[in-house]
Nucleic acid binder design. Structure first.
Lengths: 204, 204, 204, 204
DNA sequence: CATGAATGAGGTTTCATTCAT
DNA sequence: AATGAATGAAACCTCATTCAT
């Protein structure tokens, strides 16, 4: 920046390189996610990704060790973004307001990252390969399920554990249908019914 | 079989040939399903399938036009089996008993054909390629959803349509978790909670 | 560039630059030799060399035109070092003492530059590519062989030419085994046997 | 052959397939050996091998798991051929006649399989990679060295162990020079000197 | 002088599919 | 009906080298 701005023949600074790398990396990941989601992981070739990203195949390998690592990076990033959203105050307790907020945000996330989540489901169902990422999500699920069960217990539900599991599965099913289903998904109606069933409720 | 023991060159009847073809076809499909479910569609080669089925690659192409047709046949068959099970008397109406039976049978099916359904979900989430099969399943879903909604309407639920959709999604979520999840899935508890929520209910 | 001469940027003298270049060049060559010897020429990438040498890939190309030239430089340097050692007084005659000295030094060289010689042998056996270097070594061999033969002739051996060739080949074989072989090579015993066979001898 | 000659639409018999595979495999190995020896292992691509062999790249992988396995197969075969030649009567003892025979045969082998042995030396000097084959050769060397030492001991040499090692190294050196060197190698002279030094000898 | 992002040609490998037998 | 050798297109990946900065 200082001396370097005077002499153009200096190499880039570390920060400049870091910046280039970071933005390129993100660009590649976004491009790959679009293609993975549009055509599936196995049907998307490195050539396609590089082509759509406007870079050479070789460069892609400068940023990711291989196709699988690229996918892992994409999935990790999605999980991390999701983690930021859960239980923001990190007290491990979910209140009624927080649950409403959570339900609202779930639909926001699903809408905004629909492609990501379609990919995630598709990958998660591929056997054998992506246990690492799957385990990460499983960790997240466990924590979140614990909080949900606690919520149901304090709300006085008869069998808070099963109820929590059922609630969790319901959200899975909603997510799945929202992601795969037609565009005329009745978001508002579903949301209201969730409110009625699990919020403001004087017990079950 | 018997005739053949007398004169080796006794030609098989048309039906015998047809029978042999049919059973061999099924055998190939079962073998392929196992491998697809164990390793994923793209990671399973025709060689592997033929090898495990004990036949040559060439012969496999005598039974299926290609890998994709083989997959389609597997998925079609699964859907057809499922169709046989839904609303057996074809009156389009579901009673409380039938719903209980349906819930019970759902778990039986999931358990017995777990691999098939994992494959089905994984494939269904692969974009672009398998719209045909997906549409078939969608037809099934529509019919079944109509019956569910009618059931909820007659049970006096406030918003039977949304309730039906939610119920459908819940079953999807349960199926998904049952298929993917650990073996200690609390089947009985979930079943009971479903009974309590949707059967014997004095309205919502 | 010139402005830099005013303050702390006092330019280095030509000689200083040359010195820096020379030492850096040597450093790169040593680094490359280690890696070539450890992993083979083809399995060692420019990236690896630059990385281990602590410089950028680009800079390496400032010192060497390419990978092959780098290798040639390494081999040339080794040959040159070797030339310095042979027949230091350049009288073309080898005495008994000089031969003893030569045998001793051979083992010293092999020990100290074992990696270089392993590389050299490996490269020399790669056909087609490195004839230039091979020819250089061949020159050296010819001169040295002439001196050996003369030595054997003066010692009164029956067939000094063949005996010289055999002696040369024996040293090749010893070198090869020393370089490739296990660490428990019986240096002293071999040396003594060489002494007995070719020194102090009352003819054959 | 029998019934099959009548009906042309029968698949080949197992023996026919085995025959095809065996000859193809050998043909590929010979082709690859020529190219490896002519251009070096790393400079020879699968494409080149397949092209020269007149087959598709894919077929080559039907016969060898990869380039390295192809090389291993070539080296193994060479070692095996060599093993057949050593100590044919397997009594573990080498007589004077056998040693003469051995020296003679060594040159025959070197002449006939010169390319193979050049490749073998080049490979053996490649670090890290081909230890398996190298170890096989080491086994062979150990056995053979033991027999040589025993021979020298019975001939009354002073230090039969070192003498044996030296003899072994001499043969290595001769082989190396014969393989790499010019075509005017003085085979007969070298052979005679070997005879004089190590055969018919009344002690050292 | 110095950097490392970027290229692109070329390498190895896979596998659905065909076909002579 | 049955075989498996053979194909070839396309995949993934590597890396020597260039070049804007």
């Amino acid at each position: 920046m200082t001396d370097r701005s005077i002499n153009k023949n200096m190499p880039r600074t570390e920060e400049q390189y870091e910046e280039i790398r970071e933005s390129r990396r993100n660009m590649i990941m976004e491009t790959a996610l679009e293609l993975f989601a549009a055509s599936g992981y196995h049907n998307t070739s490195i050539s396609m990704i590089a082509g759509k990203a406007g870079i050479s195949k070789g460069l892609l390998y400068n940023y990711f060790e291989g196709k699988e690592e690229l996918l892992n990076a994409i999935l990790d990033k999605g999980i991390q973004e999701l983690m930021l959203f859960f239980d923001p105050n990190k007290d491990g307790i979910i209140t009624e307001d927080e649950l409403r907020y959570y339900i609202d945000e779930l639909f926001v996330i699903l809408r905004e990252r629909r492609e990501y989540w379609r990919l995630y489901f598709a990958i998660a169902l591929q056997p054998l390969v992506f246990e690492k990422v799957y385990n990460k999500a499983a960790d997240l699920t466990r924590v979140y399920l614990g909080m949900i069960i606690r919520y149901f217990r304090e709300k006085g539900f008869d069998d808070p554990e099963t109820e929590g599991i059922l609630f969790h599965m319901l959200l899975d099913g909603i997510s799945l249908n929202y992601i795969m289903g037609p565009d005329e998904f009745p978001i508002e109606k579903v949301k209201n019914l969730l409110y009625n069933k699990y919020l403001n409720c004087k017990n079950k």
